[in-house]
Design a binder for these strands. Structure first.
Length: 356
RNA sequence: GCCAGGGUAACUCACCGGUAGAGUGCAACGCUGAAAACGUUGAGGUAGUGGGUUCGACUCCCACCCCUGGCA
């Protein structure tokens, strides 16, 4: 009975593989609208470093409101959802993503358009494809901190054993060395008084999905990644990063996002030339006093030194992006449902047969 | 040419008379309210070359080759 389910087309692929472009092209061709599945372009403030698609002001594109509630960006004439929806100081989770995306998709269906889910955040995509029934336990910061402190006092093993006592089934998917997974699993067990392993289920499929993966060989992809990072710097990445550290000191998302996290030591070192050990925690307050990335009037040797630092930081970004791309590939490798394509024509054929 | 230091895994280096380690890199893998997050695993070296001492040398000695710095 799969055929009676509403259709959802998914465009996925490693970072810098050309998802955005392909998505827009297909959406134009098939009268579609785009839902972004990207855990970082969700945030309003991060633009350059996330390679976020932007409306073109020259074309007078702008935001529009759908049914008074759901917001979309119009980019090249195509509505894009789930971009710029929260601010860096707000919390956002997979569960929220799933809920909102489902609503948007059904709204698109109502208007007889084709929804295209485009993105690279593996969990966000899979949660919709496999209809994960995520246990209804929102993150409890207090509890998490408490568990963290128990870990530092009594060791990981202690907490892990506690989890296995409450939920022996957790052994199958929680590694004993992984504090974050242990904490989450315990959180669910404690709050629901049920084993996490039994709540963590897949529901019946919500959609009839076509998953299209963009295949790029590793070497080419790495080249593209390197080039894209360089072009981000040209577009003003450093200024963007600096502004954000100023506005949101000690922000968790910034500290965990490629292109932003790597600058922390670089920026703090800038103000304390005598202190080689960039103190990560002090970055924010320090940066607020930094007039610019390359203050004028610095002696040439010092300036050269800082340029060296910058180059190192950029290399670090490229490296982390490559690793990320690799993890993405690993995640999707075993999923036989994904159709891997190498060009637009192949994708277009897949879509038209699917929609027939 | 002379003096000094050095040549060990792809890179940076550690060890040192009993046939080699680390970090980084590279590769593989896991994941259900932080996921660009958070974790796990693996493959790589006939120790510059040749000789000597020794039961035994990457480790000590000699020669040669190469690199770095200083002096000419």
């Amino acid at each position: 009975m799969q055929k009676q389910l509403p259709k959802l087309i998914i465009i996925l692929g490693p970072t810098a593989s050309g998802k955005t472009e392909l998505g827009i092209r297909l959406a134009k061709k098939f009268d579609g609208e785009i839902i972004s599945a990207d855990s970082r372009t969700i945030y309003k403030e991060m633009d350059i470093g996330t390679a976020k698609p932007r409306p073109n002001p020259a074309l007078f594109e702008k935001e529009l409101n759908m049914s008074g509630r759901v917001q979309a960006l119009i980019i090249q004439g195509i509505p894009h959802y789930m971009i710029d929806i929260v601010s860096l100081n707000q919390e956002f989770t997979v569960a929220q993503f799933k809920q909102r995306a489902q609503k948007i998709i059904s709204d698109i269906h109502k208007r007889k358009k084709i929804p295209f889910l485009v993105g690279g955040t593996m969990l966000y995509i899979q949660t919709l494809v496999d209809n994960f029934t995520i246990p209804r336990v929102p993150p409890d910061t207090k509890l998490r901190k408490k568990l963290e402190s128990i870990i530092t006092r009594k060791g990981l093993e202690h907490v892990y054993n506690q989890l296995i006592t409450l939920d022996p089934g957790a052994k199958d998917f929680v590694q004993y060395q992984n504090p974050r997974r242990i904490i989450r699993a315990l959180e669910v067990c404690i709050k629901t008084k049920k084993p996490f392993s039994q709540l963590r289920k897949k529901g019946k499929p919500l959609f009839n999905t076509l998953q299209i993966g963009i295949y790029t060989d590793r070497e080419k992809l790495y080249k593209r990644i390197n080039m894209r990072v360089d072009s981000m710097v040209d577009k003003g990445l450093i200024q963007e990063v600096k502004n954000l550290y100023q506005k949101y000191p000690h922000n968790r998302v910034l500290a965990n996002t490629i292109c932003y996290q790597e600058f922390s030591p670089y920026l703090s070192r800038g103000l304390h030339p005598r202190n080689d050990k960039g103190v990560k925690n002090d970055t924010s307050s320090v940066i607020s006093q930094t007039p610019s990335v390359f203050p004028r009037g610095e002696r040439d040797d010092k300036k050269g030194e800082r340029e060296g630092e910058l180059l190192k930081t950029i290399e670090e970004i490229k490296k982390n992006t490559r690793h990320y791309a690799r993890r993405q590939t690993t995640w999707w490798k075993s999923d036989k449902r994904i159709h891997w394509i190498q060009n637009y024509t192949q994708a277009q054929k897949l879509v038209s047969t699917f929609l027939r």
